[in-house]
């Protein structure tokens, strides 16, 4: 996508640029709705594993909207994607570190 589309910053007139502003408001409303949903769900007192999966899934959708639209990641240069893929890999590793302690516990080491 980054190769086929010129970023809006260099190719568009102010009139064309204005047309894109609507999507920011759409995302804004979506984020507020998702916040309301996640708070509403928390009052249902679901079983904890289900509640955790649901809340983190909604948070991931919200974070995806912020990153894709507000941070313009939906149409970005390759070098930024490369940085982020590397970051995501290390982030996943650091999140999985606590699982090592479970392994030690199970094997009694």
């Amino acid at each position: 996508m980054a190769e086929t589309l010129e970023p809006q910053s260099h190719s568009e007139s102010p009139e064309e640029f204005k047309k894109h502003l609507g999507k920011y408001y759409v995302v804004f409303v979506a984020l507020l709705c998702l916040t309301a949903i996640t708070v509403g769900v928390s009052y249902l007192r679901l079983a904890r594993p289900l509640a955790i999966v649901l809340a983190l899934a909604i948070a991931t959708v919200k974070a995806g909207l912020v990153a894709a639209v507000f941070m313009h990641l939906i149409d970005e240069k390759k070098v930024i994607y490369a940085v982020l893929i590397l970051t995501a890999l290390f982030f996943a590793l650091v999140l999985m570190l606590p699982s090592l302690t479970v392994y030690e516990h199970m094997t009694g080491v």
Binding site: I52, L56, A67
Partner: peptide, 20 residues
């Protein structure tokens, strides 16, 4: 970009620390 990132962090902190 920095500001949206700070918002993004809160999006995860809020359910983790308040709701779960």
């Amino acid at each position: 970009l920095y500001w949206h990132f700070v918002d993004l962090v809160w999006i995860f902190l809020f359910p983790s620390l308040y709701l779960l």
